[in-house]
Amino acid sequence: MDEIRLTVDGREVKVKKGATVLEAAQAAGVYIPTLCHDPDLEPYGGCRLCVVEIEKMRGLPTSCTTPATEGMVVHTDTPAANDVRRAAVELLCADHYSECLTCPQNQRCELQKVAAYLGITRLPYPKTTRTFPVDDSNPFFDLDRNRCILCARCVRACNEITCVGAIDLAYRGYQSKVATFGDQLMISSICKSCGECVAHCPTGALAPKESRRPTREVLTTCPYCGVGCQMSLGIRGHEIVSVRGKREDSPNKGWLCVKGRYGIGEFVSHPDRLTAPLVRRDGELKKVSWDEALDLVARKLASYQKGEVAVITSAKCTNEENYVFQKLARAVLGTNNVDHCARL
């Protein structure tokens, strides 16, 4: 049997065999608070926020690691479960830098979301006083451990997605922290700066240096290598301020590399971009109008014999453009001398 039927908060739901109780709840439209859970990563059971009560089962199992079984009856919003969640989040908040207004993750923070869900408005514990220095050594993102909740999503993303393993949880107990090998700065580690850790951080602990929010997003294809990663460019005015991988219907399943995630906005908006047609006159390149430049090109290209002209097209240009370039070569210039850097 490939399908399982169970009941979550009185709602009957069908899920595929192998699904977890958390996934079943989500399929039933029931919200269970989570912090360490991430659909891109293997179940972890670290934050204890997804605990639920399951009839005929002892204690409070974590729904993210418990497989759904036929006929299971799950209660997610019970006093016992909420007590555990509350205690966990209160402790996290007590050890968390809470200047939310100046946090790059403000209003997107998952800790804010669960604290709000649980109705935590004051803390029974004094705040901790320790301060970690911010590791801002990487040119693209900062690691601010004052905002870290030790959910290990960054560590797991680095291990499970990129398989680089640049970071891990180091030390024990209260001393625990996300660290590189030998507790060096990020820039001195084997980190490849793909930013998967940043993309999977639920708080502002790992955040891009460019923290301005886009006002709109445009889905497109990465211009670097041939993998064809699908990405959303976050636009603010005339600039690209963020890049996000697309998870569904994409070759990259949401993942990106350092060039795709951090290497686009700067070249697109670079001051050295060519902004007007130029024609060489007396050895100097002079700005001219489009009409003048295009007429000159058309007149000159028409002045040669068919075999004396060649068109070199671009593997960076679109299909439509390459089609037009070769059509121009063949149908107008009358030559099959058309090629591009396919061999380089």
Partner: peptide
Amino acid sequence: IKAVYLIGE
């Protein structure tokens, strides 16, 4: 070859 139109290479 006397003239080349080269795009994005």
